[in-house]
Amino acid sequence: MWVEIFKRYIALFLLGFVIKLLDDEVDQDENLRKLPRSQMLREVQFFKLPYCLLFLSIAMMLDTPYSFALFSSAYITGMFHVSTQRLPFKLKSYQEIVIVFLINILLVPIGVFFNCLFLIVIIQFLDDLMDMNYDFTYGYFNYANRFGKGEVILVILIFLVASIMLSWVNTLIILPTGIFINYLYSWL
């Protein structure tokens, strides 16, 4: 049990790093955002892809269902707000969301998948609540500005209760790690 929890922590750290770098890559706002201050992150920016693939494969090896479910739910939540945009594979993004959803339901235990989806949505909404003013001034999409602060807080509470009902151990592992990675990335 402890070995599994330890493995899950390591996998989560690597996966959080991958998701953060991917988010920066997709947003394409490197010109607007300043380059990271630390030399290490600045060099990592140039070799994103190999490091991301390496970390992703290590995370997959350590904890397969959770890594896959977390990664794909981050993928889903990342393009949820542009649901009618055409993507490079000539599919609209809601179609891709449906395909990823079906793959998850087929391959991952369904409780694990929904737990991960709820947790990723919680982390996304918390991040939006923190960056409300920044995103408002620079014009990025933000759920807290779009739907209002109170609604977002209520949705966070609902999803928190649901994920605790699904599995409280994994909620206690994943949620603080996600918040910690967010904090670490903004601090570096």
Binding site: F147, G148, G150, E151, L154, I158, V161, A162, M165
Partner: peptide, 22 residues
Amino acid sequence: MLYGYIIILSLLLILISYSYGR
């Protein structure tokens, strides 16, 4: 488990009424 469903249901009702009123 039952308490969880009750909490979720009540929070959902609060959410709906809050957003509609807003």
